[in-house]
């Protein structure tokens, strides 16, 4: 069984993430923990130091815990480990990175409402939290059934490391996975076709699915502009991809992952 960490807040993004995670836990053998970091900076400055500061922080945590508890009650969260979130105070990025490193989580999950501007996604994946993320990250943008997933591949990728990561999370997962070989181009219309099964990277990915005992679905190639491909991928309940931590803004994969409305699981390269 793997463990995942969800960062929660009392907003729509977290509501969607929690519900999605709840459903995903029926398909992937995992245990989920939730965490909320009280941003001390946003809560004003401490009225003093030492025990005064400690008391102030405890009061903040207590009040936030109550708020989060009410939120979880409203969300009717079923998973037992999600009912008692860890509440920390401090800088959100640093606290989450600490927790992810010490907790050895298999993946990190959070809700992030999609926007029309792919630069918002670029900023997210280039935030300090994501740049230093020690594990894969699942960004839940919409509440969709997690029955089918699209695993995105491209010709340049070295998939060996990815396979190990994929197997770790998806072992015996009850999710049907389509393999999609992407080719970015500026063609007006999408070109969708069958893949050459002899392609090494496709074969490696197929092996990963078999190794994980995951149902493999279609294997196809999609050629086109990132925005068009993103629309075409809307039908999937999860988009699985890998990305370099240092991907540039004009990387078409960034644009695609930014535009696709479905939840996205990113393995870092």
């Amino acid at each position: 069984m793997i463990t995942g960490l969800i960062s929660i807040n009392t907003n729509l993004g977290s509501s969607i993430a929690l519900r999605y995670a709840n459903e995903l836990s029926n398909k992937i053998d995992m245990r989920l923990y939730d965490i909320h970091v009280v941003d001390a900076k946003k809560s004003g400055s401490s009225p003093g130091f030492g025990w005064v500061q400690k008391t102030w922080e405890n009061a903040l945590i207590e009040s936030k815990s109550e708020e989060i508890r009410q939120f979880l009650d409203m969300e009717k969260v079923e998973l037992p480990f999600l009912k008692t979130p860890k509440i920390l105070i401090g800088d959100r990025t640093e606290k989450l990175l600490d927790e992810l490193q010490t907790g050895q989580y298999a993946f990190f999950l959070e809700g992030a409402l999609p926007s029309f501007n792919p630069n918002d996604f670029y900023r997210l994946v280039h935030s300090r939290l994501y740049r230093l993320m020690p594990c894969p990250v699942m960004i839940v943008k919409n509440l969709v059934p997690a029955d089918n997933a699209a695993l995105l591949l491209d010709q340049d990728s070295d998939h060996r490391d990815f396979i190990a990561q994929f197997v770790k999370i998806f072992n015996n997962a009850r999710v049907k996975v389509d393999l999609i070989d992407l080719k970015f181009s500026k063609t007006k219309d999408l070109v969708i076709g069958e893949t050459e099964s002899r392609d090494l990277h496709m074969k490696n990915a197929d092996d990963a699915l078999k190794q994980s005992n995951v149902t493999s679905g279609a294997q196809k190639t999609i050629e086109g502009a990132p925005d068009k491909i993103a629309e075409c991928l809307r039908e999937y309940g999860l988009i699985i991809s890998f990305l370099k931590h240092k991907s540039k803004k004009n990387n078409p994969m960034i644009e695609l992952l930014g535009r696709v409305p479905s939840p996205v699981l990113i393995f870092w390269r």
Partner: peptide, 12 residues
């Protein structure tokens, strides 16, 4: 009913 969510900046 399938409903998606999205955010847009009012200025754009």
């Amino acid at each position: 009913i399938k409903a998606w969510v999205k955010v847009v900046d009012g200025l754009s």
